[in-house]
Design a protein around this nucleic acid. Structure first.
Length: 645
DNA sequence: GTAGGGTTAG
């Protein structure tokens, strides 16, 4: 009794305290007498308002109160609201109770709105079999359900599919068979859950049915083409949109490029967006832009984005942006700034921890990465598969084999993280780099799933370091089946042969690449200087300062040879001039400050690694080089990777 | 009054 009283008092407050009722219906504030007069209108209006403000728990509480009061009874206007709130709160049993109450009151299935709200609730709560059953019942020829309601119901059930499947497409074909007029909302529901192969067909249908001009449908197509990898078509859809395009269209296009690894295009689009004045960037835009800066190593650009975030108060506390900034600074080489941002965060998500742990990992600070990991566990945060990749690769980069093995062996039981291909690839890398090729192969053979290209590729990479031809051939035979167009693996085996002096092997791989139309990725290094990017390819003479750069480089080669006891450095006739050496010479000629930062698209070779180590001593400068696998900090003749990469 | 578009880490 007491409970009921307390409950009722709370609901009366919800019902009466807020300025709820539209003026044209109720110019006077709602009185207790009016609320209990038997008119459902004030109650329904209140329910709608609470739901519109996202106060779904309050809406459900109010509905319960209505049930407990003698007057008024919920009607066909009440149920859709209450059902919508129960669905928004993910309460399937509440939806089911509302369903049976609606049946008892006679509003289900007679009332179209009660019907469609229930179907929508079941679909959004993934109760698809039930939704299908109801849909089947109301689709029969003798069903009194109006056509417009049927369309709404089909739309709801289509959008209830969360993954691309034939079923969603099949449901749409049923709509067409039943002569139900689909609308733009049908397309919005269907396009994201349709098998990728059918996207161009739906695109054609969008044009034919005249829904092409609906910006929401266009946004949806851009995202779907991004998933199919047809970024050119996505761009075409974007370009054909009526200007000014809204923010979401720009974000869809920018994310499409970001997700397809077209980082350069992301930055171009961001600049174009600013120039066009069509929309102002929001945190979603900036997250994609920062992620692209991170992958390019475009630090100056990233810092300019950071400034614009600092100018906008509402952006500063956005956790997505903070995570993106940490990742950007770490991957652009400023670990100190990344750490400072991480330490300042009032709240951290698993992604924040992943960004900082992988940051320290890729800079070779495995000890700090693992210390942070322990701290994260102490704070009660459970790792996921992605975080475990960061932890294992941090161990791998720092040569912490024992710790890596430990985490790998306990990750399923202690953290409930299932071991997937990428974890096995990390472990093969960890064992292989440490020279334990046999153990690495045993691990691959013991895998509960068939090893993918990355796993065999990790073994192949280790074989290059340890010059093992037999294992390299075995790994290559697997990897070439799994990823026949991945050029890197051909180059790796070719280099293994080259190191072992097996020249017919080198020739065989080269002819294999020719037959398959594969070309070696050109190596390229670049550095930022005063806001400009200077890029170098191997044997490149295109830079305006080329003459000075080569002169400087030859001088360095001489000095290095004189200085080096190793004596095998700088055999220019043999390897040609790799791009990072040109960048080093350019950096020494132009860069101010003690640190020269260079980005490289491929892994640095042994020759260049040794060269930069010695130059760091001779010139007394620090070099920070990011290659395809990690950061190298060169200083005083040695590298932070301890020659282990 | 019921159905709809974009988001970070490896």
């Amino acid at each position: 009794m007491f409970l009921r009283f307390a409950f009722g008092a709370r609901c009366e407050k919800i019902l009466l305290s807020l300025p709820a009722i539209p003026q044209h219906r109720s110019p006077q504030p709602l009185t207790v007498a009016a609320a209990y007069s038997g008119d459902t209108y004030p109650w329904n209006a209140r329910l709608r308002e609470l739901a519109a403000d996202g106060l779904h728990s309050e809406a459900i509480a109010l509905f319960r109160h209505m049930l407990l009061s003698p007057n008024p009874r919920p009607d066909a206007f009440t149920y859709p609201c209450a059902i919508g709130s129960a669905a928004a709160l993910s309460l399937p049993s509440t939806v089911a109770s509302l369903h049976s109450l609606a049946v008892k009151s006679g509003s289900f299935p007679a009332d179209p709105f009660v019907l469609s709200s229930l179907l929508s609730a079941y679909a959004s709560l993934s109760r698809l079999p039930l939704a299908y059953r109801l849909l089947h019942q109301i689709s029969s020829p003798d069903s009194p359900t109006p056509i417009s309601t049927l369309v709404v119901c089909y739309n709801s059930v289509i959008s209830g599919h969360s993954f691309p499947s034939d079923e969603a497409l099949f449901l749409f074909s049923r709509m067409l068979c039943l002569d139900l007029p689909f609308n733009s909302i049908t397309l919005l529901a269907l396009i994201p859950v349709t098998p990728l192969l059918a996207v161009p067909t739906l695109h054609a249908l969008t044009i034919l049915s005249g829904f092409k001009s609906d910006p929401a449908v266009a946004n949806c197509l851009i995202t779907s083409y991004s998933k199919t990898g047809d970024i050119g078509v996505a761009r075409q859809v974007f370009d054909e949109m009526l200007v000014p395009r809204e923010l979401i269209s720009w974000n869809a296009m920018i994310s499409a490029c970001a997700q397809n690894g077209l980082a350069r295009d992301v930055l171009d689009l961001y600049v174009e967006m600013g120039r066009s004045g069509e929309a102002r960037p929001d945190p979603v835009t900036l997250v994609s832009v920062l992620s692209s800066c991170a992958s390019l190593g475009a630090h100056t650009f990233g810092i300019s984005v950071e400034r614009s975030i600092e100018e906008n108060k509402s952006f500063i506390s956005n956790i997505f942006l903070q995570n993106a900034l940490i990742n950007m600074h770490a991957r652009c080489g400023n670990l100190t700034r990344a750490r400072a941002l991480f330490d300042e965060m009032p709240q951290r998500s698993l992604v924040s921890w992943t960004a900082i742990i992988s940051g320290f990992g890729m800079h070779g600070h495995g000890d700090i990465a693992l210390h942070l990991f322990d701290r994260m566990l102490l704070e009660g945060i459970r790792p996921d598969g992605v975080l475990m990749v960061s932890v294992l690769s941090a161990c791998s980069h720092a040569g912490l084999a024992q710790r890596g093995m430990h985490y790998f062996s306990i990750m399923e039981t202690a953290y409930g993280v299932q071991r997937r291909q990428e974890h096995f690839a990390c472990m093969v890398d960890l064992l292989g780099r440490g020279g334990k090729l046999k153990e690495a192969l045993e691990l691959i053979r013991s895998m509960p799933m068939v090893a993918d290209g990355a796993v065999w590729g990790a073994l192949l990479g280790s074989c290059k370091i340890h010059k093992n031809v037999e294992y390299a051939e075995m790994a290559f035979n697997h990897v070439v089946e799994l990823e026949p167009s991945n050029v890197g693996y051909y180059v790796l085996l070719s280099n293994v042969y080259l190191d072992a002096g097996i020249l017919d092997g080198v020739a065989r791989i080269r002819s294999m690449m020719r037959r398959r139309g594969l070309k070696k990725d050109p190596g390229c290094s670049y550095m930022e200087l005063k806001g400009r990017v200077h890029m170098f390819m191997a044997d490149d003479h295109s830079h305006p300062q080329a003459k000075r750069i080569y002169k400087k480089l030859f001088r360095l080669e001489r000095l290095v040879k004189e200085d080096s006891a190793v004596g095998k450095v700088g055999n220019l006739n043999w390897v040609g001039i790799h791009s990072e050496k040109l960048a080093v010479a350019f950096g020494l000629l132009n860069a101010e400050g003690s640190e020269i930062k260079i980005m490289k698209n491929l892994r640095i070779c042994e020759d260049c690694h040794l060269f930069i180590k010695l130059v760091s001593k001779i010139a007394d400068r620090r070099f920070v080089v990011r290659d395809a696998s990690r950061f190298h900090h060169f200083q005083g003749g040695s590298c932070s990777c301890k020659d282990y990469w």
